[in-house]
Every structure is written in structure tokens, then in C-alpha cells.
């Protein structure tokens, strides 16, 4: 079943997070005014991105200077003799027409740039077709691309307070790491300023305090933390109020017998 929505309401970075954590395979179709885009994912990782229909075709490999026309024809012929599941790029690597590293480097750069441009869309319809796969001769990257890195880079291009404030409504909020951030952070390349903030996250300091300690503006700190947040590295929470008397968090626990009585009654309804 397709997942549909608008990136105005459920941002592209949020959707990429869902694809990543849900290990989703399928095609994400996006449209904004006259523009369209199609992204393919395999088990949560990006394998292809096309901003124009011709970018979904094998000819892209020629346009990017990876092959000449004859080599592409040769690869296509080889592909036609292969069984189900074979891809054109794999055939090219196996036939030693071009090296895996060369194809990866050029196609990954092209794919990433295609996605980064989408983060600038203020709105746009999306439809995710689960288990949709690219055509066998489509220019897919040999090694799927981690989405974490794309999210971080995409968020670097966001410069609107509005979107950031949606997730970080106040600089009085504290930042803390989620489970095993070091493991997840391995796939994320951080810029020096981002490292400065990353190193200051202690679960106690507010965003305003981090801004003071790093001499960065509150906007920059919030923007960078928004990136960490979107990539699922950290969470932001309101600073707990200073307890006066008994706080709500210390509310007395209910008796098991009372809960059991309610359970039995609801079961019997």
C-alpha cells in the first residue's frame, strides 16, 4: 500500500528517517509544481535518484562520462543474458568495463546532489510505492547510500526558523543523546562546527547554554541540533521544572487490585 502525503506537513528528512529505520524498499515519487523526482530505496538505503525521466535511463552513464555508447551497448547485451535480479551497473563492474569505485563515486555524487536539491522544496506531494524497484538497466549505485548522511546534508541547507521551531520550540530545551549515538554517528560526516556542538551535548545544558559555551548563535545551534534530531542521534526535551512540593512526576502509583478490577470490567463489556 502506498504512503501518501505532502512534504510541507511531513518533511523529506522525516520521510527519509522513516525509510531508514523501517528498512523500506520502494520508490518515492515526488512532485512540486512542474517538477518531479523519483527516488528508489533498498532496505532503507538510497540506490537511485532521478530529477528528470532521462536520469532513470542507462544513457545517464554515458552523459556522466562513465561509458561510451559502444560500452553501454555491450553492457546491455550482457544484461539481457543474465537472470532476474541482475543490474546494469553490476554487469558493468563484472565485465570490467568500469571499476566499481569509479561508478560508485560518480553515481553517488550525482544521486546525492539530486536529493539535496529536493530539500529546498517548500512543499510537494509524495507517494511511496512499497517494493517498487527500478528497471534492471537503470543507473543504480553499486553500493547503496546511507540515508543518515543525506539527512544531515539536507538539513544543512535549511535556513528557515519556522521548520526548525517545529521540532525545537525554545532554546530553553535540553539536548541529550539517544541510544548508542556513537554507532549511528559513524555514518554521519560532521562539519567542525557540528562537532563543537556534538561534543557539548550532556543532557543537562540547554540550547541557549550550548550557544554561549560555543560562541555560536542560537540559530546556528538550533539548526545543527535540528540536524542531529532529524538524523535520530539526539532528542530535545523541556527542562524539568524545579519541584515545589510534590511534582506531577512523583504522582502516587495506583494499586494493582484497582487496575485489575477495571481490566476485568472492560473485558466483560
Amino acid at each position: 500500500m502506498a504512503l501518501v502525503g505532502n512534504i510541507k506537513d511531513f518533511g523529506l528528512s522525516d520521510f527519509l528517517y522513516l525509510v531508514d529505520r523501517g528498512y523500506k524498499t520502494g520508490g518515492l515519487h515526488l512532485s512540486h509544481e512542474q517538477e518531479t523526482a523519483l527516488l528508489f530505496f533498498d532496505k532503507g538505503k538510497l540506490i537511485m535518484a532521478a530529477r528528470k525521466p532521462e536520469d532513470q535511463q542507462a544513457d545517464l552513464l554515458v552523459r556522466l562520462g562513465l561509458l561510451n555508447g559502444d560500452q553501454l551497448d555491450q553492457a546491455r547485451q550482457s544484461l539481457s543474458t543474465q537472470g532476474n535480479g541482475a543490474t546494469l551497473t553490476q554487469v558493468i563492474v563484472d565485465s570490467q568495463i568500469a571499476s566499481r569505485e569509479q561508478i560508485q563515486s560518480v553515481l553517488q555524487g550525482f544521486t546525492e546532489e539530486s536529493v539535496y536539491g529536493l530539500f529546498g522544496w517548500p512543499e510537494g506531494e509524495f507517494r511511496f510505492e512499497q517494493n517498487q524497484r527500478p528497471a534492471p538497466d537503470a543507473p543504480v549505485v553499486p553500493i547503496p547510500i546511507s540515508v543518515d548522511h543525506l539527512i544531515m546534508e539536507g538539513v544543512r541547507r535549511i535556513d528557515e526558523w519556522g521548520r526548525i521551531k517545529d521540532r525545537i520550540p525554545s532554546t530553553d530545551m535540553i539536548v541529550r543523546f539517544l541510544e548508542q549515538p556513537d554507532e549511528r554517528a559513524k555514518g554521519v560526516k560532521l562539519a567542525p562546527e557540528e562537532w563543537r556542538i556534538f561534543a557539548r551535548i550532556n543532557g543537562k545544558d540547554t540550547l541557549a547554554e550550548i550557544a554561549r559555551k560555543t560562541s555560536l548563535s542560537e540559530f546556528d545551534v538550533c539548526r545543527i541540533v535540528y540536524g542531529f534530531l532529524t538524523a535520530g542521534l539526539v532528542e530535545v526535551r523541556k527542562k524539568p521544572p524545579v519541584a515545589v512540593g510534590r511534582s506531577a512526576a512523583d504522582a502516587p502509583r495506583v494499586k494493582k487490585s484497582l487496575v485489575n478490577r477495571i481490566i476485568n470490567r472492560i473485558k466483560g463489556m
Binding site: 504512503l3 501518501v4 502525503g5 505532502n6 510541507k8 506537513d9 511531513f10 517545529d166 526535551r237 523541556k238 524539568p240 521544572p241 511534582s247 506531577a248 512526576a249 512523583d250 504522582a251
Partner: peptide
Amino acid sequence: RPETFRETNRIIDFFVSYRD
């Protein structure tokens, strides 16, 4: 309606942040 997910998060945050 994915357009309501953000608002839902705000509601969860309100009820859950301070309280157990």
C-alpha cells in the same frame, strides 16, 4: 492524515514531557 503527525507529536510532548 500525515499532516496531523506534527500536531500529534506536540500533544504527546505536552502530556508526557513533565509527567510519568
